[in-house]
Structures are given as C-alpha cells and as structure tokens.
Design a protein around this nucleic acid. Sequence first.
RNA 1: GCGUUCGUAGCUCAACUGGAUAGAGCGCCUGACUUCGGAUCAGGAGGUUGAGGGUUCAAAUCCUUCCGGGCGCACCA
Length: 574
Amino acid sequence: MSIFEIYINKIKELIKKKQKNLELKNLNDFKNVTVEVPPSNFDSDLSCNVSLILGKINKKNPKELAEKIKKIIYENLNDFENIEIAGPGFLNFKLSKASLIANINGIIKNRETYGRKNSNKTYNIEFVSANPTGPMHVGHCRGAIFGDVLANLLKFNGNKVTKEYYINDYGNQIYNFVKSVFLRIREIKYDEEFINNEDLYPGEYIILIGKKIIDENKNEKFDNFKKSFELLKKYSLKYSMELIKTDLKNLGIKHDIFFSESVLIKNKLVDKAVSHLRDKKFVVDGYLKPPKGETDSNWKKQKRLIFKSTLFGDDTDRALQKNDSSWTYFANDIGYHMDKVNRKYDYLINVLGADHTGYIKRITAAVSAISDNKTNLDCKVCQLVKLFKNGKPFKMSKRAGEFISAKDLLDEVDKDAIRFIMLNRSNDVELDFDFDKILEKNKENPVFYVQYSFARINSLFRNLNKKLDYDISLNIKNFNLNDIEAKILRKVLEWPKIVEVSSTKLEPHRITYYLYELATLFHSYWSMGNEDFNLKFIENGKIKREEILAIVSTVAIVVKRGMNILGVSLPEQM
RNA sequence: GCGUUCGUAGCUCAACUGGAUAGAGCGCCUGACUUCGGAUCAGGAGGUUGAGGGUUCAAAUCCUUCCGGGCGCACCA
C-alpha cells in the first residue's frame, strides 16, 4: 500500500470513530477525500482535503473543522511531527523522524515492488496492427511503444496482460499489395516497366520482397497474376510481416498474439458475430441515411445489413455489407472483437493512430452490443509524430512511397532514446521528434539526463567500494535530513501515486515526466558540493552521513523501476 | 456541415480524473570547473491558461456560446 493509501485509511478510520465528537452527520463514504502531495512551496510531506469535503456536506466552516480533526489526529496518531492548516482548510502533515525512517527502510527492503498498485485483472491490449502491406513508419512506432509501456505498467501492478496484433491480411489493399509485388517481379524478370498508380505500392521494399520470392520459386514463371496470386500472397505477407516483426523486435517489443483477419473470416467468426447481434435485434436489414452535407446525386439508396450502433452512442448506424454484399471492414472487426470478448478479459484496450479517431464510437458501440455492456473497451489515440532534422521538418509522402520508416529511425537513434522521447508527451498531443537533439548527450536530451543520474549514483557507490543494494542502517537518534534531501524523499514517496495515476488513466507519459523531475532534484543535490564543500558526500573515502546513501538509494530504486516500465536501459557507467 | 481532439510563458509542453502562489525544458540575461563524473548546477526576467458567460468554498480542468489549428466523415482498410 502506498503512503497515501495508508494515511487516507488511517484518517478515515479515525474520523469515523470520532464522528460524534466532530459533530459530523454525513460522511458520504468520504467520496473525493484524498491524501496528496502538497505543492512544493509547503514544507510538508502529505496533504489532505478531508475538512473541505466534509465541511461542505455538513455545512461547517472547513478551517474550524480542520482544527478539530488536527487535534484528534495528534491525540491518536504519532506518525507526524507537525500538522498545519493551510489555504482554505487543507491539513498538511510533516512526518516524524521515525516514520520517515520506516518509509525509507520499506522502500529499500521492497525495492523490486516499490510503487506497485496491486491489482489482478486481465487486460488485452491491441496495438500497432500496422497493415501488412509495408514496413512500419514513425507513427506506428509511437503507438507501438505506447502500447508496450502500458502493458509493462499494468504488469508491474500484477495484472495479466495479453499484447495483441491484428493483421489486416484481407481485402482490396492486400490484392493491390500482391499485385504490386507481381508487377515488380515482372519488372525484374522480364524488364517490364513498373507503372505506378494510386492503388499500387511503389516502395523499395516491394522490390526486395519480389527478389526473395523469385529466389524461393525458381521454377515459377509468374506469367499469370491470377494463377500466381495465392502463392504470391502467401510469400508477400510472410515477408512483409517479417519486416514488421524485425522493427518491433528492434524497438524491444514482442506481441503475444498475432490475429489474422483472413483466418477470422475463414473460421466464420464474422457470420457468428453478425447472427449473434441479429438475434439481439441490433443488426437489421435497412437503409442508411445519406451522409449530411452530401447532395444526394451520388447517393444510392440500397438495402443492406446494418448495425444499429446509434443505440450505443454512435452518430449514425453502420453498414456491415458492401454493395457486392461482402463484409465491410467494420463487420470483420466486429467478428474480431467478439472473439476478444469471448476470451473473457476484464478490460480491452485498443491503441489507435490519430486517423482512426472517427472509428472509436462504432467499435466501442459494437463491443457494448456484443457483451451486453459487460466488457469495457478503452480506445487510446496516439497523435501524429512530426519529424525534425536540422531544425527543419521532414515530410512523408505516401504517394511517392517515401516515408520515414521505423528502420530509418532505428538506424540513426537507439531504441532507448526512441522509447523515452515517444513517451515524453501526452498521447493526445502531437509530438515533435528531433533527430539532432536525441543524439546529444546533455540536458536537452531527457533520456540521457535520467540515465546519467543513475550512472552518477553508481559512481558514488563505486567510490565507496559498496554495492548499490548495500544494507543501509539509519539511526533515529541522529537522523536528520536537510532541505534538499527532504524534497527528494518527498518526490520518491510520490512514485506510487505516479504509478497509480498512470495506470488508471492509461497515461504512461506521466512516468517520463516524473523521472525527469526526480533526476533534476538529484543532479541539484549532487552539485551542492560544488558550491559548499561541507555538502560533499564523501570525506576521506567515507560517506559523511548514512542518510545520504539512504536518499540516493531510494532515488536509484525508483529510477530503475521507472525505466524498467518504460523499457529503457539504465547503464551503470556512461 | 457533423463528429472528435487540442488551444497554457517568445517556442515545445506538464499540471495528481475540481484544489492552495499554474510548473518544466529550450531561448534570453547573470554566475559556479585545484570535479564524490561541470555530460552538471545556482540565480533572474517571462502568464488575464484563445474569448465571453455559467456551476461552487475552490475551475486550465466541468457545462455553454463563440474563435482558431489537427484528424475523421456511405459503399476503403
């Protein structure tokens, strides 16, 4: 349990017990009552808003109520050295030396699990799901890393997480992809010019795939597209998935399940899902309304199968069949999601690119319909990545087949830096990715800055001939923290809160920000010895005070836990 | 037009699902290297949180009307 949970529970219990003395009629289950980190300008470790909340529902002056609660806490708990009432009625607590020591010891003792928010749910995270028509590009990287770190985070808390990739290996795009490979093969084998048009994939990788296929099928003439189609499809998909899997591997990502759309269709999962929804009357024969703003000249009214997604909050009902009565992409996706629902996860998460925002309502509607509102699907959108080099943006042009691929990125920048930078923004904000900054070894590069703090801590321990997990013993009689040490410890105590919020909100960027802040405090602490010789850590080869090692150890522990979740390496020396 | 998302310091962004005096980095100005690794640090200037209205003890955060950018918008995937 985190320090915040421990004290919120203690305070609640105490107030419940003393409810009459406090003349509180209504506790309302302590809804919205929290223990938080106070703003940094207050010299306190913890802060509680209980008197503001209870004051309001009991129509009492919050400051007066706070005084009473403060008195009761003093009389019943001896964890605090000081309690202050601040602002409109916050209770600010300063922990006693004994409880500070207990906390530090607890962190050091439970270094592997410190910060964990215990939970044992099952999650399915679908992410990347890049079309198998070509290698991954930079935008996919962001979603890939986001999903992977989310998985790490949820696993850290004790949940079971399945990482899944949906392969869209069906439909027109695959036809065009295979055709492109065919035409490239004709080009190589028979010197026929490859004439690009909008439906085809011109990229260089298509040529490579073509060459590989030629090598593996020496006797095949490739004189008839129809005849060669199945063979070409098999190999083309295989090789392009290999490209994608290599990129993922180089980013440090491994999915548990690759789920194929064409297998889904072959196994009639779509038919099953649709008839399931038809039984519930959510799928009917009907007519779609023409899109608004469209003049009806192009609009053909046609009877088709329709999913009534408006019953579940969508803006319009959605077609499940095309004009030729084959399934739409959405229908297939319903089949896929029914399969996920049937696999009985507690939570489903889809990580999507910004261009799929418009798809969210209908797919969440579908999941609600399939599961009778029992399964919750959370769609997280990763916004665009904008690349910069030499201060200038580069553009990606899909038409010319020129885009910056994950491989291009990995060739220049190591995976640690890519992972950290991609998470250095909230997922719903566009991200500027600067090739130059990321290669620098200074403060402008946050990955380096955080790694460097850990390296410095290791260097300190090396100088003392001690190991990082050396058994620190603190003595209550002469335990004393200076201002910066108290500040650092408060930051370290905040770690469980960061884990909790990041995982409940599914926002891993909070971890990168936090680690940067922690590293800043640490570097500042480290450098104080430059200003004032008395603040140096070591004298005559020995540590001056045991508290220093304790504080620094807790920093190392948290940095390590954080970077593990981010999947970023943490060298002991740089 | 509809939906969705964002708008916070000169620039790029945070802000603990409503909290206290809105915080970082870059850039700008001023300082600290006989170093426990200066690959760093200390200090300063910089804000009507796009605009107006509302909800309340408390709003960048919730509601509402505008303004402005991104993305999407039958039968593609």
